[in-house]
Simulated scan of single mutants.
Amino acid sequence: MLDIAEELNRWVEQGRDFAVATVVAVGGSAPRRPGAALAVDADGTAIGSVSGGCVEGAVYELCRQALEDGESVLERFGYSDDDAFAVGLTCGGIIDILVTPVRVGDRVRPAIAAGLEAAASGGATALARIVTGPADLVGRALVVRRREADENGSRNSAPYDGGFYEGGFGAHPELDRTVAAEAGAFLDAGRTGTLEIGEQGSRCGAPLTVLVESSVPPPRMIVFGAIDFASALVRVGKFLNYRVTVCDARPVFATEARFPEADEIVVEWPHRYLERTEVDARTVLCVLTHDAKFDVPLLRLALRLPVAYVGAMGSRRTHLDRNIRLREVGVTELELARLRSPIGLDLGARTPEETALSIAAEIVADRRGGSGVSLTGAHTPIHHDATSVPTGRIGSVA
């Protein structure tokens, strides 16, 4: 749901009734991942998508029904071998979808509205909803925000270790606190998925399935070296939804005119900028300077940071020489093993745009666990990060 937070937040502000269908889990080759959503308002206006077209019509009708009767429903869709034109996923996957009415006066609306507002404003937030369990709890929600986002909490929020949460499930009070803590962990990792938990907040007892959707600011891509290849990489990075910074010590090259699509341009020695800037486990660092006086102090620091990816441009000869220099300044073999150099996948790239595509492909493969080989003739999964379908009763939940 948080993937369409900006539009849904406007609906809330306008006082519209709507129902939202959210992908809970997928199995096999499904087109959308958990958290993808389709919403329908009382006038029949639809936004978002849950399947890329395969089951949109059926899900649209489920939303209209939920708006009418006020009941949440969990529905499973899969490929029909008997009738290829029946409602189902022709890609052969399975998809579970939770449909929740969000009408003015519904108990779930304040929590969902708080989550939508926070996500729409770019804040880090997690929305937790019960997917399977007792009928009166399905669809109930709470929203989690980090402590630094709201130091004092709002009037309706309650603290947990690491932040605040609003809303609740209306069951055992420990359930709210436990789910808030678990959702906070999902939020810290920028992860969306499901968890299983007992009705009283323990790991035993009647199980509940809870969907946790995380919305976090875009991950960072920092490109060191204001060269023509960097300009192409900035464009690709923005296309992949990174917040892109270009850093170079040479003011004549690091200009807005040369990098109009960059979110930030920094004129500073690369290693000094990296020392003071904020990075996290989703940050990717692309070193395109291939100049030892910049590369060595920069990579010495970069390879010791908890970032997602470190790649460096250069020929194989440059790579070998750079590794010697890095060892001389104390970089260990374990740290060197993290370095992607020469940067990018083997696409035969020559132009800046082709090289940027090669680098981006390696970043995606590294993030998703892909091999980088052609899918033609391969027997590897197309999607490497599929979330398993949760156990429990699937179908109509009154």
Rank of each mutant, 00 (worst) to 15 (best):
Thr355His: 04
Ala46Asp: 11
Gly162His: 02
Tyr242Gly: 05
Ala36Tyr: 04
Ala180Glu: 01
Gly163Leu: 00
Leu298Lys: 01
Leu334Ser: 14
Val364Leu: 02
Asp385Pro: 06
Ala118Val: 02
Glu268Asp: 15
Gly78Tyr: 07
Leu116Pro: 10
Arg146Tyr: 03
Ala356Thr: 04
Ala230Tyr: 00
Leu336Pro: 06
Asp346Ser: 08
Gln14Asp: 12
Ser29Tyr: 04
Asp3Leu: 07
Val143Arg: 06
Phe229Met: 09
Gly163Ser: 14
Gly88Phe: 05
Val397Thr: 08
Val26Phe: 00
Ser215Tyr: 15
Asp43Phe: 08
Ala226Asp: 09
Thr192Lys: 00
Ile94Met: 08
Asp161Asn: 08
Gly133Gln: 01
His271Ile: 12
Phe77Asn: 04
Glu117Met: 12
Cys63Met: 10
Leu8His: 06
Ser202Ile: 05
Glu261His: 09
Ile95Leu: 01
Gly93Phe: 01
Ala5Met: 13
Phe169Arg: 01
Ala19Leu: 08
Glu71Met: 06
Ala128Arg: 00
Gly198His: 03
Leu233Thr: 07
Leu274Trp: 05
Phe224Ser: 08
Ala111Lys: 03
Arg325Ala: 12
Asp81Phe: 14
Lys238Trp: 02
Gly122Glu: 07
Ser388Gln: 03
Ala114Ile: 12
Thr178Asp: 02
Ser202Arg: 09
Phe294Thr: 02
Val73Gln: 08
Arg325Gln: 15
Ala262Gly: 15
Ala158Phe: 14
Ile222Tyr: 01
Trp11Leu: 10
Thr355Met: 00
Glu333Asn: 09
Gly372Ser: 12
Tyr160Asn: 01
Val389Ile: 15
Gly372Lys: 12
Thr277Phe: 07
Glu213Val: 07
Val144Leu: 02
Glu199Arg: 11
Glu213Cys: 05
Arg177Cys: 10
Glu353Met: 14
Ile227Pro: 04
Ala308Lys: 07
Leu298His: 03
Val40Gly: 05
Asp106His: 10
Leu98Thr: 08
Ala46Asn: 11
Arg33Trp: 05
Gly92Leu: 03
Asp17Tyr: 11
Tyr309Gly: 03
Arg10His: 15
His319Gly: 13
Ser214Pro: 00
Thr255Glu: 00
Phe85Trp: 13
Thr209Trp: 07
Ala189Lys: 13
Gly53Trp: 11
Cys91Pro: 06
Ile47Val: 15
Leu345Pro: 00
Thr194Val: 08
Gly370Trp: 03
Ser374Met: 02
Tyr242Lys: 11
Leu240Gln: 02
